[in-house]
């Protein structure tokens, strides 16, 4: 079953581009990464899912129901925004109780558990908290009703590495209990760690949706070769070669495709050195995002 289904979702803002024909399906129980640079449309997509803004075209459904028309689907949704803002004059516990009051179940136990894990002082006033601590309030607030779908928008900014680790453990735990996670970020390493599938968004369009394993294991290799004589650039003008950089006798590029074909090409060259590496997601990412101009 698909927990989130986004079909041809388009949002035009008056001046700026929003998102264009976004299609995504997120299956139950997976941790789905949503990757893109700032301003690519990640938050716009999420805001449509939450019902904050209306799509210009297309539909978005959560648990099979249209997210604009059915506010009640948000009972099973936990959301952590990228920047956390709350009603100032409240103590942390007041805010969390207010948040819990929307869910018609007793969340006190879970609030205390989460606050303990995240090392959060419930009695402080929210205005007195640092950015990182406000973020912790956001995390507890997003998880206190044990939602079946967790939407995270740049969740780790402002958290120290230790807290990030605790946070990831927490998310992994929720996921094992059956929660589906939609994880938007521009930090690739954290997505790499957590997610089973990932979608890349660039300038409002989804450019690729792939399994993390496919991305990492099979398709991409980073080649660095050093030849004894000058390398002919034309020789590498073939399918699957990208980000080709040539400096005198050294060439760097990313290759996607049948390894044998590229090895044949390379065997024609008199080599001094070669290295073939797994590119990290960052490189694949840059490869997608390199502006085509």
């Amino acid at each position: 079953m698909n927990v989130i289904e986004i079909k041809d979702l388009t949002k035009n803002y008056r001046k700026s581009r929003g998102i264009i024909d976004v299609n995504l399906n997120i299956e139950e129980g997976e941790i789905f990464g949503f990757i893109g640079p700032n301003g690519a449309g990640k938050s716009t997509t999420i805001r449509t899912l939450l019902g904050l803004i209306y799509p210009s075209k297309g539909t978005a459904t959560i648990f099979g129901k249209n997210c604009i028309e059915h506010p009640d689907i948000r009972k099973e949704l936990g959301y952590l925004p990228s920047e956390v803002f709350y009603y100032d004059n409240m103590r942390v516990i007041d805010l969390l109780k207010y948040s819990a009051s929307f869910y018609k179940k007793d969340c006190t136990k879970r609030i205390n558990e989460l606050a303990e894990i995240m090392d959060l002082d419930l009695k402080k006033k929210i205005d007195d908290l640092s950015f990182g601590n406000k973020k912790k309030v956001g995390i507890v607030q997003g998880l206190l009703h044990e939602p079946k779908l967790i939407i995270l928008d740049e969740p780790t900014s402002g958290l120290d590495p230790l807290m990030q680790q605790k946070f990831f453990d927490l998310i992994a735990q929720e996921n094992r209990k059956g929660a589906t996670v939609f994880f938007s970020s521009h930090i690739l390493s954290e997505v790499q760690k957590m997610c089973s599938r990932v979608a890349f968004i660039k300038e409002g369009k989804i450019i690729k949706t792939e399994k993390m394993s496919t991305l990492q294991e099979n398709s991409y290799k980073r080649f660095s070769i050093e030849a004894k004589s000058a390398i002919n650039k034309e020789a590498f003008n073939m399918n699957g070669v990208s980000s080709f950089e040539l400096k005198n006798n050294t060439a760097n590029f990313i290759f996607k495709g049948n390894i044998n074909s590229i090895m044949k090409k390379i065997s024609e060259i008199e080599l001094r050195n070669i290295s073939i590496e797994e590119p990290d997601l960052e490189e694949i990412f840059m490869h997608y995002y390199a502006k085509e101009d």
């Binding site: 805001r47 939450l50 019902g51 904050l52 506010p71 009640d72 689907i73 948000r74 009972k75 949704l77 959301y79 925004p81 920047e83 803002f85 709350y86 009603y87 100032d88 948040s99 929307f102 869910y103 607030q141």
Partner: peptide, 14 residues
């Protein structure tokens, strides 16, 4: 006060 995201993400209709 930028609390809209908090409020709208709750299961309440506008």
């Amino acid at each position: 006060d930028k609390t809209t995201e908090f409020l709208i993400a709750k299961p309440v209709s506008r």
